[in-house]
Nucleic acid binder design. Structure first.
Lengths: 229, 229
DNA sequence: CGGACGTTTGAGGAACATCAAAGCCTGTGG
DNA sequence: CCACAGGCTTTGATGTTCCTCAAACGTCCG
């Protein structure tokens, strides 16, 4: 092994093994010798709110693990309108379609300040063939994407707009409170309702005490949220 | 190798290598020696319309490759209502969540007469660690699930009910015409609209010649379908 | 301060759900 | 062969929800 390669491996081992959210991420149960397969550095990056990790139809080189923050996957339509198809939080993977196709299918845009690990697709492809640990992580990520998509369809696209907003708030609060409350426009694009309707519902939830906000952070009253129909 | 194991392997090789839709399915580029890992028989089964491949919260033993027909994945809600979260056609895989979790997340119900290959989960788990061919097939299936889910969200849950129904018809016709036209109730559950609205739209499409039906088979006029707003 | 941007609120109208009834196929049994 | 029951589909009348267009309000920042 060449000296600079050794340095690279040690560098990756150190970075990933000390990662505070390692239990959540792709490399969760990678072993020391697995890291020898990582020929390229893993880059840790910070993005401001509103930045694009990648754009629709960019060519594909990287997969991103979200370390903190919130990312939306946006699907633009030919007519100029758009839809948010997924939200990604800590531990989620952005751009896994990279593993099989040649262009990203959506844009990934940060909704608040976000830190990510940027991993070369090549690396993952090589490693996933050798390491059964990574393989398991990958399939469980795919699994999560699928079940999230079903939950989305089941809870965020049917019922009244009030019910849908309540379900979105419960979804957002599920991981941690206080949680980041998206803009009314994003709530609309998430639930297929207009910005105005999103605003009316949110304003109403605030008045009845179902929702409390401070800046863009929010908490909810679960009991009230579940009673909305 | 014991005689009956040899027989088993040969049986599987023969079955899968002669499969007329093999290019579409999970075992697409499996090599002869990969088949030695298949310790259990692959069962080929026929189901009548309306039968359940598996039910929500069944314990998981099998994955199903759809050989012909149409299958809906149904997600029931606590309040008794339900939503169809996905349609599966020739070449699609039902129950891949089996690979990672311990119970199915939905019910899989046939919408017309359907033939499937029933494959033991154990088999796939063993084989996917050894065969990079199967591994690639699996990741590309996951990929398809994800992009389908996004298309679903983008085209089948936003816009007017007429636009959504038109998009569903285009989706169904995309693979082959004539295609199976689902019941009005299923169209409703697919698009999050009521049965009555689905019926009104379909009846109207028939009157304007956008849609033609014979029994439960349908063809569409793409030009008209794309103009609906 | 003024401008840009996001949020809130209002009035009117269109789209869709709801409730209800009638029509239409299909299969079954007299 | 016809009658009829049961399921699915179509159609109608009515009410509610949500969209559209518009304006006012608040907040952040140069």
């Amino acid at each position: 092994m060449k000296p600079d390669k050794i340095k690279q491996v040690l560098n990756n081992i150190e970075k990933c093994q000390l990662c505070p959210i390692r239990h959540l991420v792709l490399f969760a149960d990678l072993q020391a010798d697995d890291f020898q397969c990582l020929n390229y550095p893993i880059k840790e990056l910070k993005y401001k709110a509103g930045a694009a990790l990648y754009k629709q139809e960019d060519t594909i080189d990287y997969v991103y693990t979200i370390r903190s923050g919130l990312v939306k996957l946006v699907h633009y339509l030919p007519n100029g309108s758009y839809r948010i198809t997924r939200l990604l939080q800590q531990g989620d993977l952005a751009g896994i379609e990279a593993l099989n196709s040649s262009a990203y299918l959506q844009q990934a845009i940060t909704m608040q300040d976000t830190t990510v690990c940027k991993i070369l697709v090549k690396n993952i492809q090589q490693l996933s063939l050798k390491s059964s640990h990574l393989y398991r992580q990958l399939t469980s990520q795919w699994q999560k994407v699928q079940s999230d998509a079903d939950i989305w369809l089941t809870y965020l696209t049917m019922g009244s707009s009030r019910r849908r907003v309540a379900n979105l708030l419960i979804y957002l609060a599920n991981n941690k409170e206080p949680f980041f409350l998206p803009s009314r426009e994003d709530i609309g694009a998430l639930l297929a309702i207009t910005t105005e309707t999103a605003s009316r519902v949110i304003a109403d939830f605030k008045r009845t005490g179902l929702l409390n906000t401070k800046n863009k952070l929010a908490t909810i009253d679960y009991t009230k949220a579940k009673l909305i129909q």
